[in-house]
């Protein structure tokens, strides 16, 4: 056999082997979570409240809190990230200042979430007086998600061909109109995909929430739709334990006899939800891109 051919086979084998190991780790992790967790997931488990001391409790409040926190965080983070991305992509000159801005965004993305959690505790919870609340949690998660979301939005905007902008300007449209009416609609699939992937990260985040959204769930009234009422399930100023925090808490200081079952069941629900977020991000992105071209 030729030497070059032999080397090529060796290199290909090595690359395949490494890729296989990486895939195996991920797949076996997900499989383990689902196999150990799914048997504990039942309709009762999903729809009843957690119990403090006895077995047989569910995760309904935590599950709702997680979804609500996703909505609250995206409501704050998406406009901010989109604004920053529009500035960076459409308006910012290419100079030292904007490069510094991009660097700052990248540094922000590598901050450990526990650091952001403690920062949120000091600033949002104590200084701003938000106490342990969904809002404080949403603000901390905004900080975590801002870098990747901004990057996703910027990339989506950059992928709109420059000629589209030129054509708009050539028709006598002001730049803000070109950005809003021509560029943004075409970038929407990418922006939505970024937002849904962020939703997955928000759903799975625990460390940043322990000191911001809190670890306790007050009894809320799911029939009270007034977000300003203290007992309303929509009140963003109430403390709220999310699913990920619940898993952590049950494992570390849980007093219930079925702690292991509850935490693996909750973990299975968590990973399934994130899986659904990711798949729907892909599906929705493709669907919108197709509709746009039609």
């Amino acid at each position: 056999m030729q030497k070059a051919e032999k080397q090529d086979r060796l290199a290909t084998g090595l690359i395949l082997g490494l890729a296989g190991i990486a895939a195996l780790i991920v797949i076996s992790l997900v499989a383990y979570l689902l196999i150990t967790g799914l048997p504990h997931v039942s309709w009762h488990f999903l729809t009843s409240s957690a119990s403090a001391f006895t077995s047989g409790g569910g995760i309904f409040d935590q599950l709702f809190n997680s979804f609500y926190l996703v909505i609250l965080t995206l409501a704050v983070a998406v406009p901010l990230a989109l604004g920053a991305a529009i500035y960076l992509s459409e308006y910012a000159p290419q100079n030292g200042w904007t490069n510094a801005l991009r660097l700052a965004i990248e540094v922000l993305s590598s901050l450990p979430s526990i650091v952001i959690g403690l920062f949120g505790y000091l600033v949002f919870v104590l200084r701003w007086g938000l106490d342990f609340s969904l809002l404080a949690g949403a603000l901390a998660l905004t900080i975590i998600n801002l870098p990747l979301l901004t990057r996703a939005c910027e990339t989506a905007l950059q992928q709109v061909p420059a000629l589209q902008r030129q054509a708009g300007l050539g028709l006598g449209m002001p730049k803000w109109q070109v950005t809003l009416k021509i560029v943004l609609p075409q970038a929407l699939p990418g922006i939505l995909t970024g937002a849904i992937l962020s939703a997955g990260r928000i759903f799975g985040e625990a460390a940043a929430l322990i000191y911001t959204a809190g670890q306790s769930t007050v009894n809320v009234d799911y029939t009270n739709w007034n977000p300003f009422a203290p007992t309303s399930f929509l009140n963003p100023m109430r403390p709220a334990e999310t699913l990920a925090v619940h898993i952590w808490k049950v494992n570390t200081e849980g007093l219930i006899p079925d702690a292991a079952a509850v935490s693996s069941g909750a973990a299975a629900v968590l990973i399934l939800t994130i899986l659904i977020f990711n798949l729907s991000a892909r599906g929705l992105g493709n669907y919108l891109a197709r509709r746009l071209r039609k």
Binding site: P161, L163, Q164, Q166, A167, G168, G170, I182, P185, Q186, L292, R293
Partner: peptide, 9 residues
């Protein structure tokens, strides 16, 4: 009018 056709989607 530009070099490449630029219809909006």
């Amino acid at each position: 009018v530009f070099q490449q056709p630029t219809p909006f989607p």
